[in-house]
């Protein structure tokens, strides 16, 4: 599981690469919560290279989103591949998140707010 980090304006773009399962989810959770501790509260997760997500991975996104509501922040997920999107849909969890088809579209979600 690879984890990249980039910043555009006030938005931190996190790129996830590989399989997010019970073995790797904890590392991602620590990184995401670490970003929030650091004071970042606009997170965009680019899932273009996320090959697989298990329930443990979904839990990390839920925990991140929950933490961000406490800090009045915002989480947007972008470019989910079909398999990953299906997991979000089957679990009904896609209704909880803002999911964007592209990174650019996701970035506009923050601009509208600002």
């Amino acid at each position: 599981m690879q984890f990249s980090e980039d910043k555009q304006g006030s938005v931190v773009i996190v790129g996830l690469q590989g399989r997010m399962d019970s073995n790797t989810a904890r590392t991602v959770e620590e990184k995401m919560l670490g970003l929030i501790e650091r004071g970042e509260h606009r997170l965009l997760v680019d899932c273009a290279e996320l090959d697989y997500i298990s329930s443990a991975g979904l839990r990390v996104f839920l925990a991140t989103a929950k933490r961000l509501t406490q800090t009045k922040g915002k989480l947007v997920l972008a470019t989910l591949n079909d398999d990953v999107k299906q997991v979000f849909d089957l679990t009904g969890i896609s209704s909880i998140f803002q999911i964007s088809p592209s990174r650019e579209d996701a970035l506009t979600q923050y601009q509208q707010e600002a």
């Binding site: 849909d89 969890i93 209704s95």
Partner: peptide, 12 residues
């Protein structure tokens, strides 16, 4: 009907 997982959305 795809309901949401248990434990997340109180009013579902």
């Amino acid at each position: 009907k795809a309901g949401i997982v248990l434990g997340i959305n109180e009013h579902y």
